[in-house]
Amino acid sequence: MKPSPRSSALAGAVLWVILALPPVRHVLESELTPQVLVQIPLLALAGALLARLFSRRLDTVMRLWNDGGIPGLLLASVAGMTWMLPRLMDASINEEGYALAKFLTVPLLVGVPVALSWPKSGFVTRGVLLLEVVATAFRMGWLYLVSPERLCSNYLLGDQQRLGKLLVAIGVVIALVLAWQLIWGRVRVESPQ
């Protein structure tokens, strides 16, 4: 049974507040790996949970402007790509303005659009997006692994290389799961609309 929109929105709001608590921020931002693999994904999840509260009300708008979920997923990709910039991750720790921007834009410009667009998107759109997720994990992972210099001034080189390994591993896992689903799973090729 799916939880009601109200309770998932509440869960999203609680998650958002917890992530913003100074001690939680401190722990998750003290190293690069938890910031990239825990804090930012959970912020996006908080937004996605919140989105269920107004997804029905936005239905007409979405039908008109977010056909097949493409603009929404594009928005999430662009916003997500921006927060992958090492200098912005640095700035979100050193400067309050950037911290606020991260805590607002990751849930609202990544989590919310994904939640509103994914159910509307078809096989091809999802395939392209997922492939791009895998490719990005490999690209960023490789960059962090081979860079002899620290890309974030706030973090140590060993931390950066650990994140690189994890990103490559995550890319491999997602790719394997997708391949498994394509070969042995049930694949719905037609558009959900």
Binding site: L85, P86, R87, D90, E149, R150, L151, C152, S153
Partner: peptide
């Protein structure tokens, strides 16, 4: 031009 805070 600048992707890291150092180059920025």
């Amino acid at each position: 031009r600048a992707y890291t805070s150092e180059s920025a």
